[in-house]
Design a protein around this nucleic acid. Structure first.
Lengths: 222, 222
DNA sequence: ATATACATGTCGAGG
DNA sequence: CCTCGACGTGTATAT
């Protein structure tokens, strides 16, 4: 990894064109060909390029090309504050916990906490228009479809579950079908659309769900 | 800006929980409190935190806290390869050129290239469920709504224009209403849904559109 | 390889 | 401040 600290001007040409007037930046050139340009603010790079690339240094100009897409990142150096190379070893991969899949696992463990009497029949049930998160039956035995959102549900989530319902309703054995969006929060448009489409909104308290699942079961999360 | 190159282990707790086993990384601590952790691969940081933060160094442990959201990034140092501070000055902002807006401009210049005889009545026409990209009339005078996608259109785009159509159809003077998605490419699910919803898909050749607009007009792109 | 949906998405415009 | 849709989205997963 090369860590270059320099005053420079930057241009990018790809799907769009960007220009960054002269300023001091930290530029990382990685072994896989990727490049990240950091300015003095913000956690994410202001400019970047994914690998693999060809890096071509020509005096004060560094050109980073990506042949596949025809992208070009041009760095015009004005002055160099530091320029170091480091041999870095890192075989670790980022482990994540708390994504939508894990939320699904919690619901599968404790569907009662979504609605009393709810029973999960099938997870990720495929349809022509995409997979249904949960195909369930409620306490009365009515087919109930759940669309789960980890963050705030928007109108698109409501439309998604409506599409699923249309698919499932083609099977007369299933009707009537309840369509439900489960999320910690709902955008107003999502609630409004749900009302017109006959879709139910269930607010999910994720903390309560986690607490409600027995510790012994939670061991299997990861 | 502090540039720390070190072998370390990293934990993040916030909207989700992540862990990164020991390895060599480059960590940037910026003046605005943001932190970026880069591993040996990829243009984007593997872990990060937006500012403002409080950074607390306690021997081999660095804790970065964000009070607002309760996020915590913990860096457990094993060995330090380099640790430098740089006074950086950068007042420049990233300038961009070439987003969806420009595609809209091209269509507004040459609606004939979307469909012969098409006339744009209004751009970004507001409705209760969001703005319609283009409110048009076709060669026969029929109201025609365009939803434009710069990249591949998915099912959500079809549903978007269906919602707009429902709104417009409330005005009897407008019916019948054509609903059209315009994109360079369509996902199969989008085409399938469009068929069931009576929505038309028009494939847009952006290169041809650019070529079809006179050079004198194209000067006004930027 | 293609298609699909998730993401610590992140960002910016508009009400 | 909240809501919403675009993004150089990127990335993982299933087909």
């Amino acid at each position: 990894m090369r860590v270059l600290v320099a005053r420079c001007e930057i241009a990018y040409e790809g799907r769009l064109v960007t220009r960054l007037a002269p300023g001091d930046r930290v530029i990382l050139f990685k072994g896989d060909g990727s490049v990240a340009v950091h300015n003095t603010k913000g956690a994410k790079p202001v400019n970047y390029m994914a690998g693999p690339t060809v890096v071509e240094e020509d005096g004060a100009v560094i050109r980073v090309r990506r042949a596949q897409s025809g992208e070009l990142l041009t760095i015009l150096l004005e002055s160099i504050h530091a320029d170091a190379r480091h041999e870095l070893e890192d075989g670790a991969a980022l482990e994540r916990d708390g994504r939508e899949l894990q939320l699904h696992a919690l619901i599968a463990q404790a569907p009662d906490l979504v609605e009393p009497g709810l029973v999960v029949v099938q997870r990720e049930r495929p349809t022509d228009v995409g997979p249904i998160d949960f195909f369930c039956r409620d306490a009365a035995g009515t087919v109930t479809l759940l669309e789960v959102k980890r963050v705030k549900a928007v109108a698109a989530a409501v439309e998604q579950v409506v599409r699923y319902r249309e698919q499932v309703e083609r099977d007369p054995a299933c009707v009537p079908v309840r369509a439900v969006v489960v999320a910690p929060e709902f955008a107003p448009q999502a609630r409004a659309l749900a009302a017109t489409r006959g879709v139910e909104c269930i607010v999910l308290d994720v903390a309560a769900l986690r607490a409600g699942v027995a510790p012994a079961l939670r061991l299997f999360d990861g």
